[in-house]
Write a protein that binds this DNA or RNA. Structure first.
Length: 285
DNA sequence: AACCAGGATAGCA
DNA sequence: TGCTATCCTGGT
């Protein structure tokens, strides 16, 4: 299948696209050559290619996907530019630098049920480790899409796993999170979507009813899968950024949350991605 | 050979 | 509310 050009509003750098796909908000993408990546979107396996500042795509396996859906998933429309412009980059030099270095870095619009699963497994794990756990699950019970790619199995299938099964896949103490959440969700198919439609504050509280979901994981799920761009997950990288770049040493998480809300505004989560990437790339600072 | 990692939870003050 | 130990596993 030939490469097709996909329109991107605004410029996009190689670091921007790479961080978007591999930076840890999603675990569905992998590098498959020079400036090319393979990823699974729902039941479609898609290749992306970055060349001379332009983005190309083609479908590899699985269900068909439209350009419209891809544009939506990758947040390529104008609303992204407005969101970035809404951030306080004019007065915040730290954020300004991060936006410049990772130009075009986006939040992916992923299915909330998939995001929930991977972030249930994320506690005290590195990105490659989380990805490995995800692959173990997908290979075991996810639909085979071809080319070694598997779809997300869905919470109904996940609810058939026992804690022992999950532990065999290497999840350790996270196994009971996965099983507990699966049991909670299996008889309430609409629950997650209801939560998604709720306002941010309410959605966060409700998500934390699930076993294994605390404040950080809830914010990740809402930011990456719930379309809540005001969610501002505070992990160790952001903590470092706020301590070292902004000078908030010894602040409590609740205080930092409040600062983020006031300072970064309604798209605080987008700022979070820039700061996160910047901090991770420049560990020494 | 200890110690830590993209956290959550229970127990206690 | 704030603090701490504990939870699996793999990596350094």
């Amino acid at each position: 299948m030939p490469w097709k050009l996909i329109e991107v509003k605004g410029s996009i750098s190689i670091e921007g696209i790479e961080e978007t796909l591999l930076g840890g908000q999603s675990f569905c993408w992998r590098s498959c050559g020079e400036n090319t990546w393979t990823g699974v979107i729902s039941r479609s396996v898609v290749d992306l290619k970055w060349c001379d500042g332009k983005l190309y795509w083609c479908k590899q396996y699985g269900a068909p996907i439209t350009k419209k859906k891809l544009t939506q998933y990758l947040w390529l429309d104008n609303s992204y530019l407005k969101a970035v412009d809404d951030l306080p980059w004019r007065s915040d030099v730290v954020l300004g630098r991060a936006i410049k270095q990772f130009r075009g870095l986006r939040l992916l619009r992923q299915p909330i049920e998939e995001v929930l699963m991977v972030f249930l497994l994320s506690s005290a794990k590195s990105i490659p480790q989380i990805n490995q756990l995800r692959i173990n699950i997908h290979r075991l019970i996810g639909e085979d899409l071809g080319g070694g790619n598997h779809a997300f199995p869905g919470w109904n299938k996940l609810s058939q796993l026992s804690e022992q099964d999950a532990r065999k896949l290497g999840m350790g103490y996270r196994a009971k999170y996965l099983v507990g959440t699966a049991q909670f969700l299996k008889d309430r198919l609409g629950w997650l979507n209801e939560v998604k439609e709720s306002p941010y504050e309410e959605a966060k509280i409700r998500l934390m009813e699930l076993p294994g979901v605390g404040p950080k994981v809830a914010d990740c799920v809402l930011l990456f899968g719930g379309g809540k761009t005001e969610a501002f997950p505070i992990d160790t990288w952001i903590l470092q950024s706020l301590e070292k770049q902004y000078g908030f040493k010894g602040w409590k998480v609740s205080q930092l949350q409040e600062f983020a809300h006031i300072h970064f505004g309604r798209h605080a989560g987008l700022a979070q991605q820039f700061l996160f990437s910047f901090q991770r790339k420049n560990k020494r600072f």
